[in-house]
Nucleic acid binder design. Structure first.
Length: 971
RNA sequence: ACCCUGGUGGCGGAACAGGUAGACGCGCAGGACUUAAAAUCCUGUCUGCAGAAAUGCGGGUACGGGUUCGAUUCCCGUCUGGGGUACCA
């Protein structure tokens, strides 16, 4: 019985192997890899370690589209490649499961975010599994699970219980600060908050509340007040992108700024280390630039301008250009500036108030982005400290309260924005840079010699900077100052679906929860509606509020700031990640994700890592050694163009029932030209009365990309797509309906998404993986186009035919390879090795295609060559490689195969055809042996008939050999 | 508005340190095999001019300048697509 079964299996096997049945092969290997746990990794090995990480996804309800796997495929290729190269590779995956969309979904549909998230994760996982990734799923994490966020809360408590010692430039336990206050009061080196000055005995005499208020100014996680987008009508706080032009995206209700109690992370204390750390990591220069611009370190000075009316009062400004002090023609303060009421004169009061109301409705982005300038005079003047010149004080939205001192000295001849402001409000401009300023536009030069500048006249601006600062310091009205554009990170949300804060409030004091009470689980709620006064939904729970627990929750980036550590030790219930685990795996060797995280997630996780390092909880202070940013795959949307008409009610109703669409090539003609040519079609469709209607416009509508072949609309399918299009008629060009197209972000609502699972079913995971890589460089954004996928599929079938013939069956042999065949495969090994290492996966795929073509031309079916080829291919197309690897007689997984080494000796040529150029223009070619000396080559070149003719007796000035590619004679 | 990044055939892209621009693939055109289709294979495919042809000469990497013997690559300016701008992830 057993034998019969076996025979049967064998015949099926042979039959199957005539052609490349990718579906069966991929299913078989995915099951076997899972059963054999081939991707499970252990925290110890004699091999070197390599940690390859993807930015984990937010499991959105719309599932995976072809853009998601791009980075995952790239990292999977790299992880498999490293494993083949003999590394112990950690390649995990998980979910960043807290987030606003799930909460909005809950509000709209009443489904608990945990439920919808769980479902979404299931979908993601099913889709991911089809692509054949080498993730170690036993290490999967989910930031929304209590076993995970217990440690997010725990790290938060460490931040809460820490302060930053600016002398040692590191975080320390708050207890050290307290004992310093007890011993020497605020005179200790640790006091850097100017408004706190107390002695040791004063400290001891303070109430607990007073002491805690002071400590709050030092904690790395602290509570304060901050402005949020408040929508009264919705009773909730809105994200910036939920606000459009001062109105809520949903409902269109007015949105204003409101101050609410907020948690913050004191990331500004790490500004210098975040900046310095960039030098130790392999991020792209662009990424480093974005981060350092965000941190925005600048050197300058703070100085006081006394009020004209009340010289004891001062307006303090921050400037990076103290040298321009005599060019100050006006001051601008932020609308939120605390001295605004003092500065506003009764005459200007009404105007200032109107302006403030206007600014309140504006988002910060709008305030700095808008081209038009707005502002308002306060009525007051301050005095230039050096020459007592009267300077008017203005308010403008482009000055932000949070940066510097919230007030600037405006120098219109040197600053573009100040210049435009002066022009708009007709403020006279002082020129301090002579001929560098023409009155047409500002000139921010630092090279001019100063004029109209009192004691600075004739001095260069660069030298003047330090002179002014010295003088300011000596007369005590200012000082040198380093400033950062970066602000402390807002760390709370008035939302439900996030980590609860392990904080209890008593008498206005925030007390940390005991560690043993973690996790503080997110309670179930009946309603996701906001709580009273803009608080989060947790404020609606009597059970929660009666315990005085914090009602804010943590933001999306909390869990993602440290997740890379949890993968190292995912099931540890004693600690967030054991020291042995983090010591073994260390930094992430390769991190892949989009640039959109440049200044958010990446900075936060770098800060958390530095913090954990300071507390000696991990042994490294940069999380990611190397970062690669994958580009975004955009959707290529298709449009149909509907004719919009004006006419009788009957006609307008018909226009809805029987819409008429016009082909893209015709839509740009003038409406008047169209009237006559389209009328016939309208009459045909709607009856005689249609001759009366007027065509008023043509509107473009998204159409599902699956209904369009290239640009041509599949009309029957389109009619079936939506019931209201079933009676549609079409104005064609050349008997075809041609759609319009546009490249946009991939999204369900634009009908331009492509589902990877469908492609995997049609062409196989291997084809899909290789095609995504073949599409272009991983780093580059590009629109998705399914058309080319056939070419990659053809390549895999060609590869298959090197092993099996449709009629003859097995064709691979154990014969010894020829020199030509060896040359082909060694060329491939060299190229693949280089390309995979430098992340040039698109050219690597091309090289594989060329190799298979060349082997096909040579009719090479030799195992010796083919098995090397399979290993090269394995990271890219794991299923087919594994199948064929076993077919040629290997028992173990291809991932444990030794990666082939190329041998120069198979590639060496004895002579080469060199182009010979004169002044860069190629004139002829010469065969030159590779071991010829430079002099021999020169003699040969100069002796050549054609070259001599061209040189026409002239001796070349020099002869340049260009990287083994050409020889150029410069005359 | 500011910061970052891209722009090369009909299309995706290649050219890795400034050195023969258009590899590889798609599409298209023609051909072979087939009763036919599918599949497969072969040939051509930036462009203008000349030529029966092999081929030759010129132009060409968004646009305008510059540096260089030589520029898709470096520099300056302009136009334009994409990402980010602090509560989307």
């Amino acid at each position: 019985m057993a034998k019969i079964k076996d025979l049967h299996a064998r015949s099926v096997f042979l039959l199957v192997h005539m052609e490349y049945s990718f579906n069966a092969i991929e299913k078989k290997w995915q099951e076997r890899w899972k059963a054999d746990q081939v991707y499970k990794v252990y925290n110890n090995s004699t091999k070197p370690k390599c940690y390859v990480l993807d930015m984990f996804p937010y499991p959105s309800g719309t599932g995976l589209h072809v853009g998601h796997p791009l980075g995952y495929i790239a990292s999977d290729i790299f992880a498999r490649y490293k494993r083949l190269k003999g590394y112990n590779v950690l390649h995990p995956m998980g979910y960043d499961a807290f987030g606003l969309p799930a909460e909005q979904f809950a509000i709209d549909h009443g489904i608990h975010p945990a439920t919808s998230t769980k479902q979404n994760i299931k979908n993601f996982r099913e889709q991911l599994d089809r692509i054949g990734f080498s993730f170690d799923w036993s290490r999967q994490i989910n930031t929304a699970e209590p076993s995970y966020y217990k440690w997010t809360q725990w790290i938060f408590l460490q931040l809460f219980n820490s302060w930053f010692d600016r002398v040692e430039n590191k975080a320390k336990h708050i207890g050290e600060l307290i004992s310093s206050f007890e011993k020497q009061g605020s005179s200790g080196i640790h006091s850097y908050h100017a408004n706190n000055s107390f002695s040791s005995s004063e400290w001891k005499s303070y109430s607990e509340k007073q002491q805690q208020d002071i400590l709050m100014e030092y904690r790395l996680a602290y509570c304060g007040f901050g402005e949020v987008n408040w929508c009264e009508a919705l009773g909730t706080v809105l994200a910036n992108d939920e606000v459009i032009n001062g109105f809520s995206e949903r409902g269109g209700f007015p949105v204003v700024k409101k101050k609410l109690r907020q948690w913050y992370l004191r990331i500004t204390e790490y500004a210098d280390r975040l900046l310095a750390g960039l030098e130790k990591v392999e991020f792209s220069e662009a990424m480093k630039e974005m981060q350092s611009n965000w941190i925005g370190k600048s050197y300058g000075a703070e100085l006081d301008f006394a009020f004209e009316r009340e010289p004891s009062k001062k307006l303090r400004v921050y400037t990076t250009r103290p040298d321009t002090i005599f060019g100050v023609d006006f001051m601008v303060i932020a609308p939120e500036h605390e001295l605004l009421t003092d500065l506003t004169t009764p005459a200007q009061k009404r105007e200032v108030e109107t302006y403030i109301t206007y600014v309140k409705s504006r988002s910060e982005r709008e305030r700095i982005a808008e081209k038009k300038i707005s502002g308002c005079f306060t009525g007051s003047y301050v005095l230039n400290p050096f020459n007592s010149r009267k300077i008017p004080v203005w308010i403008s939205e482009y000055v932000l309260a949070g940066y510097g001192t919230g007030a600037i000295m405006a120098v219109p001849c040197g600053d573009e924005r100040d210049f435009k402001f002066a022009q708009q409000y007709k403020i006279p401009i002082t020129n301090i840079i002579g001929s560098h300023f023409h009155g047409e536009e500002a000139n921010p030069t630092k090279d001019a010699l100063l004029e109209n500048s009192d004691f600075l006249d004739g001095i260069s601006m660069r030298d003047a900077m330090s002179l002014v600062i010295e003088k300011l310091e000596s007369i005590g009205i200012g000082n040198k100052r380093v400033n950062y554009k970066m602000r402390d990170a807002a760390f709370s949300r008035q939302r439900y679906w996030g980590e609860p804060f392990p904080i209890i409030w008593k008498n206005g004091i925030a007390y940390p929860l005991d560690e043993k009470d973690l996790p503080l689980e997110l309670p179930k709620v009946d309603s996701y509606k906001p709580g009273p006064d803009g608080e989060g939904p947790l404020a609606n729970l009597p059970d929660w509020t009666s315990k005085h627990l914090e009602t804010n929750t943590m933001p999306g980036y909390a869990g993602s700031s440290w997740y890379f550590l949890r993968y190292m030790d995912p099931n540890n219930s004693e600690t967030f990640c054991s020291r042995t685990a983090s010591a073994y795996w260390g930094q992430v060797d390769l991190y892949i994700g989009g640039t959109e995280h440049a200044v958010g997630h990446l900075l936060y996780s770098r800060m958390w890592t530095k913090f954990l390092f300071d507390l000696d909880l991990i042994g490294f202070d940069e999380p990611y050694r190397k970062l690669v940013n994958q580009g975004m795959i955009q959707g290529s949307s298709r449009f149909v163009y509907r004719i919009e008409i004006k006419g009788s009610d009957k006609m307008e109703a018909l226009a809805k029932q029987k819409p008429v669409f016009i082909s893209a090539g015709l839509k740009n003609k003038k409406l008047s030209e169209l009237q006559s040519s389209i009328k016939n079609i309208l009459i045909e469709s709607w009856g005689e009365e249609a001759s009366e209607v007027e065509i008023i416009s043509i509107s473009g509508l998204h159409v599902d990309v699956s209904l369009v072949d290239g640009m041509e609309l599949d009309i029957p399918a389109f009619k079936k797509w939506r019931s209201d299009y079933s009676n549609a008629s079409f104005v064609l060009e050349n008997d075809k309906y041609i759609c319009g197209s546009e490249v946009e972000k991939m999204s369900k609502s634009k009908f331009n998404t492509v589902n990877p699972t469908e492609l995997v079913e049609r062409y196989g995971a291997d084809t899909f993986r290789m095609y995504e890589m073949f599409l272009g460089p991983v780093e580059q954004s590009k629109p998705w186009d399914t058309k080319g996928i056939e070419g990659v599929h053809r390549f895999l079938r060609k590869l298959w035919r090197l092993f099996f013939d449709e009629i003859k069956g097995r064709v691979w042999t154990s014969e010894t390879a020829t020199a030509d065949e060896r040359k082909v495969i060694h060329k491939a090994i060299k190229k693949l090795d280089e390309d995979t290492d430098r992340f040039s996966f698109n050219t690597a795929v091309s090289a594989l295609m060329i190799t298979v073509n060349e082997l096909g031309e040579l009719k090479c079916h030799k195992k010796e060559v083919l098995e090397k080829l399979l290993i090269l291919l394995a990271p890219y197309a794991p299923h087919i490689s594994e199948e064929l690897w076993h077919e040629i007689g290997n028992e173990y997984t291809i991932l444990d195969a030794p990666y082939p080494k190329y041998d120069e000796k198979f590639l060496i040529e004895s002579e080469k055809l060199y182009p010979i150029a004169i002044n860069g223009k190629t004139r002829t070619e010469l065969n030159i042996s590779l071991d010829a000396s430079q002099q021999q080559v020169e003699e040969m070149v100069l002796a050549d008939e054609t070259v001599r003719k061209w040189l026409n007796g002239v001796t070349p000035k020099k002869i340049i050999y260009v990287r083994n590619k050409m020889i150029n004679l410069v005359v």
